[in-house]
């Protein structure tokens, strides 16, 4: 399966980190680990900018996080217009990793506030789409 299946509407189909999708489908949050400098990367990356190594080792991380900020999109790109309004957020996970992700529509806007504890969960709503979503803890 190509990487265009990551997200609601993928733009990039070819990458070295395509194995990420199979982790998400197994309800795991994948990261890569640089074998040389031992640093973990999330979102996963295939190349270590520190020691310039090619990274091939995978691990999984905990989805507990705190919301850094969010918005509610009312005016969207054409292919997302039917989903409006929807939330997008940035959250910080354990270990300092940051993620940009949609926030579950089950939460009301008044409940969202920077600093709020949340959880990043893998989701595979259809066979063609797999990603992660910020939800209530």
């Amino acid at each position: 399966m190509g990487f265009e299946k990551f997200g609601k509407e993928g733009y990039v189909s070819q990458t070295k980190i395509t194995p990420m999708l199979s982790y998400l489908k197994k309800n795991q949050l994948p990261a890569t680990v640089c074998q040389k400098c031992k640093r973990t990367w999330f979102p996963p990356r295939a190349d270590c900018p520190n020691c310039k190594s090619n990274i091939t080792e995978w691990t999984t991380i905990d989805g507990t996080c705190r919301l850094v900020t969010f918005t509610e999109v009312h005016f969207a790109p054409p292919q997302f217009q039917s989903d409006t309004p929807y939330f997008l957020g940035v959250a910080e996970l354990k270990g300092g990793f940051r993620v940009f992700a949609p926030i579950s529509g089950k939460i009301s806007r008044d409940m969202l506030k920077p600093g709020r504890q949340m959880v990043l969960r893998p989701t595979t709503p259809t066979a063609d789409h797999t990603y992660y979503l910020l939800e209530e803890l």
Binding site: E9, T69, T71
Partner: peptide, 25 residues
Amino acid sequence: DVMWESPFGTTMPAYYAMYATAHMS
């Protein structure tokens, strides 16, 4: 970022709105 962010329906205003939310809070 088309790999990690655009697949969720980003817009130009959405990015700046996130700075606004953070500043308000």
